[in-house]
Computed example of a mutant assay.
Amino acid sequence: MQSDLNCLRQDPQAKAVTYYADARDISAILDEDSLRILRAPLFRLNAPGSYCRDVAGKDEVLSDPVAIIHGPASSPEIAVSANGVRGLTPEAETALAALQEACRDERICHQVTLRPGQALLINNRKGLHARSAFPAFHDGTDRWLQRTYVRRTLWSLRDRGTDVGPRVFA
């Protein structure tokens, strides 16, 4: 799945940036132990609140145990939840910390400053992205990014059917 971040409005001070780190670059700087652990199903991802509105009274909706990095070493895929990842063992928590440190490494962390009318396309399987903090004024001038998800097929979502209306717009 791809994310498309469309910039409708930049923050007034033009300080907000989007960070991106490619899974190949992340894997290249991780030590062998961390990489081995990140490739094992020792993690649970927390679902974003917008995906689990039906689950009233729950602070967290965690996935089954999954690996964070998978696929061939030459073209790894990576999956991390922005709402939190829980390592199931102390070693998994240590590997997760190494992953976070790698993502902050200036050699692999790319910074993109989006201006109105610009879009950033991100393959969510091949890299990680985050947005920086910036002062919010709540006066109608704050940064406004519109997120769109792009999928080749909805087939993998067929068991999640709900009455939320159409998911494809022409």
Rank of each mutant, 00 (worst) to 15 (best):
Q2K: 05
L5A: 06
N6M: 13
L8M: 10
D11T: 07
Q13L: 13
K15R: 15
V17M: 03
R24C: 08
I26G: 02
S27E: 02
I29D: 08
I29F: 05
L30A: 04
L30S: 09
D31P: 09
E32R: 14
I37H: 05
R44Y: 05
L45H: 10
L45G: 04
N46Q: 04
P48T: 01
S50C: 13
Y51G: 05
Y51T: 14
C52A: 14
R53T: 15
R53K: 14
R53I: 13
R53M: 13
D54Q: 15
A56V: 15
A56D: 08
K58M: 11
L62S: 02
L62I: 00
S63R: 07
P65F: 03
I69A: 07
P76F: 06
P76S: 08
E77L: 04
A79R: 12
A82G: 15
G84D: 06
G87P: 09
L88R: 07
T89E: 00
T89I: 09
E91A: 14
A92R: 02
A92G: 05
T94W: 09
T94D: 13
L96F: 10
A98R: 11
A98T: 07
Q100P: 05
E101K: 15
A102C: 04
R104L: 10
R104V: 01
R104D: 09
R104K: 12
Q111D: 01
Q111E: 11
T113G: 13
R115E: 10
P116G: 00
G117K: 03
G117S: 07
A119H: 06
I122D: 08
R125P: 01
K126C: 02
K126G: 04
G127Q: 02
L128F: 06
A130G: 08
R131P: 02
F134S: 01
H138P: 10
H138K: 11
T141N: 11
D142R: 08
R143A: 03
R147L: 11
T148K: 12
R152I: 09
S156L: 10
S156Y: 11
R160E: 14
R160H: 14
T162W: 10
V168P: 03
F169M: 10
